[in-house]
């Protein structure tokens, strides 16, 4: 194949660290709007984990193990964000108005759930989609030059 494909330390480390990164991104996503965190930085962390896996295992292996079309993902995220904005029309409220309530959840105990979290989910998906689209497009750049 090529020169290398024997980054044993990097590959072993990545399989552990990617889990830590994904867990940290989920923590950041739920910590949002009261503490540092939120959809944007959570999405950035998730895409950092995906980029790390791409660096360790190569693009072809990632394409088969994580078959997500990132160009579709950010359209989905924008649609979710728009839908949560429009959702306030159902309750005769202005566009993008939000509310929150406290719930008793099984593991987490008394938790604050806000409708802003749904909007954050849209931001999260959009950030993952756009970041991965940009990085993978730059990585594929060389191939298209060769094929011409």
């Amino acid at each position: 194949m090529k020169i290398n494909s024997n980054d044993l330390i990097l590959k072993t480390m990545t399989s552990i660290i990617a889990f830590i990164l994904l867990g940290f991104s989920i923590y950041l996503f739920f910590a949002g709007h009261n503490a540092p965190g939120g959809g944007f930085i959570g999405g950035l962390m998730t895409s950092a984990a995906i980029v790390l896996m791409n660096m360790a295992y190569g693009q072809e292996a990632m394409k088969s193990s994580l078959p997500i079309n990132f160009r579709f993902l950010f359209k989905l995220g924008l649609l979710i964000a728009l839908a949560t904005g429009m959702g306030s029309f159902l309750f005769n409220e202005p566009f993008l108005s939000q509310t929150f309530a406290y719930f008793q959840l099984p593991v987490l105990g008394r938790t604050e759930l806000a409708t802003a979290l749904l909007f954050d989910l849209g931001v999260y998906l959009t950030v993952i989609g756009i970041t991965m689209t940009i990085i993978l497009s730059i990585a594929e750049d060389h191939k298209e030059e060769l094929s011409e």
Partner: peptide
């Protein structure tokens, strides 16, 4: 992640590998 990317670029000249080329 940035340091890994820089180290890989210096060592191999490519950051995200592909099967072709």
């Amino acid at each position: 992640i940035g340091t890994i990317a820089l180290a890989k670029f210096i060592e191999k000249g490519v950051i995200i590998e592909r099967d072709d080329n």
